[in-house]
């Protein structure tokens, strides 16, 4: 009887939330899956079912493959910078935990993560500017001739990676600082007694113990890396009269196919690919953790 009353209360309280979720999450996700099997040009009344034709076309579509490639490079590139730098800086901050400055360091590294992206990207755009930017001015001090950061196909991708990493590092530092703080101190002391130096203890004790944190930060960084859009939009957008190389990324290609090429179904199939990647990454994270838990 009591259980039944509680169940009724729970359902009554949950129902509105369930309705909202169904409305703004379940249904649109289902629509994406459904539309990926259809052809629709945004303005016509009919939406013929075309099976997997969109997906077939995707894998012969060079713009999509470029976007997929760029996005993957950006995601893993960001990861490659974020993890070591984040872990290193967090270790140093952790070492100086007693200092008055620790809080300042932590907060400062975090600011890039919270500032709105567009103004931040604007700042980076100027830094990378081939003719006016301080980066080339700085490099010229070492006799390096100016590089065209935002125009070169390889360099422009690197620029996006730097911007993404700049934002992601603060988050990684924060999580790692918590991780370091939660490491059992006696393990370090034991290592020290065995004659290990601070650096050795860091490498052989802390890094392995932090594996779950590293895994978590990696997956979060990768997933947000695969969703990169605003960074590329501002840094390398195709504004009229403002030449610069467009770094084609998945979300950009998706929006362009939907709202510029009027191929909503085709864009939905791109979204499904993106979804598959994200699910795969999450799956990898869980299975690695489970494996570790089983041991």
């Amino acid at each position: 009887m009591l259980a039944r009353r509680q169940w009724l209360f729970a359902m009554a309280a949950l129902l509105p939330i369930l309705a909202i979720f169904a409305w703004v999450r379940f249904y649109p996700i289902e629509e994406t899956l459904r539309m990926s099997l259809h052809e629709w040009n945004l303005i016509s009344k009919t939406r013929p079912f075309i099976g997997f034709a969109n997906f077939q076309e995707l894998f012969g579509d060079e713009l999509f493959l470029t976007a997929l490639f760029n996005t993957t490079v950006i995601a893993f590139g960001t990861l490659a910078i974020t993890i070591p730098v984040g872990m290193g800086i967090a270790a140093l901050i952790n070492y100086r935990l007693g200092s008055r400055l620790a809080g300042v360091f932590e907060t400062t590294t975090f600011i890039p993560y919270i500032v709105p992206l567009v103004p931040a990207a604007m700042a980076w755009k100027w830094i990378f500017d081939a003719r006016l930017g301080p980066l080339n001015a700085f490099l010229s001090l070492f006799g390096i001739s100016p590089l065209s950061w935002l125009f070169d196909p390889v360099l422009s991708v690197i620029c996006v990676i730097v911007l993404c990493a700049w934002q992601a590092i603060g988050y990684a530092v924060l999580i790692y600082v918590v991780g370091f703080r939660n490491l059992p101190t006696n393990v370090f002391e034991a290592a020290k007694l065995d004659g290990a130096s601070g650096l050795q203890a860091f490498w052989h004790v802390a890094v392995p113990l932090l594996r779950p944190i590293t895994l978590y930060v990696s997956v979060v960084t990768l997933i947000s890396g695969f969703n990169v859009y605003a960074q590329a939009y501002v840094l390398a957008s195709d504004a009229q009269g403002a030449p610069g190389r467009q770094v084609r990324v998945l979300v950009l290609d998706m929006l362009e196919n939907s709202f510029r090429n009027y191929r909503v179904g085709y864009a939905a199939s791109e979204a499904v690919i993106l979804l598959a990647i994200v699910l795969l990454l999450t799956l990898v994270q869980f299975s690695l953790l489970r494996e570790r838990g089983a041991r």
Binding site: R25, E31, T32, M35, V251
Partner: peptide, 8 residues
């Protein structure tokens, strides 16, 4: 990710 169902 939000971007996936943004269009519907």
């Amino acid at each position: 990710p939000f971007e996936i169902y943004m269009i519907p």
